[in-house]
């Protein structure tokens, strides 16, 4: 079964790195350059199975994006993972409290991504 993922990050290099990792796991990947573009992508394409979102981005940051997404019941089952270099415990707690399902500190390796997918029940075994 092909799963779908949305990568929301303002760094093109990060997006293509995450796209590569997810593609290797069999994901069909879409990209957005910031939170508001991410919201547009969702309204165009509907919910994805998984969304990896950066924290610091122009226009709409990752935290705001998560809040907006979590207010919409259409996206209820989409797993949201914050992938960011913000590593303060308070940041992590805030992301989780606002609806992130998981949190990964950059750099995200393939092994760490697979672990996160397993935690979210997105890995077939």
């Amino acid at each position: 079964m092909t799963r779908s993922a949305l990568v929301v990050d303002d760094s093109r290099a990060q997006r293509s790195m995450l796209r590569r990792l997810l593609s290797e796991r069999g994901y069909d990947v879409s990209e957005a350059g910031d939170g508001s573009e991410g919201v547009e992508r969702l309204s165009d394409m509907g919910a994805f199975d998984l969304c990896l979102v950066d924290w610091n981005m122009p226009n709409m940051d990752g935290l705001e994006f998560i809040k907006v997404v979590r207010e919409n019941p259409d996206y209820e089952r989409m797993q949201l993972v914050m992938v960011t270099s913000e590593s303060e415990p308070a940041h992590i707690a805030r992301a989780l409290m606002n609806g992130a399902d998981e949190y990964a500190i950059k750099p995200l390796t393939m092994d760490a991504l697979v672990d996160k997918l397993a935690i979210l029940g997105l890995e077939d075994d």
Partner: peptide, 20 residues
């Protein structure tokens, strides 16, 4: 290390059981 806590540890547990 940060790389090690990214491996398999659910984020809620990282916040609850570790200090930075």
């Amino acid at each position: 290390s940060q790389l090690e806590v990214n491996r398999g540890l659910p984020a809620p547990m990282l916040v609850k059981y570790f200090t930075r």
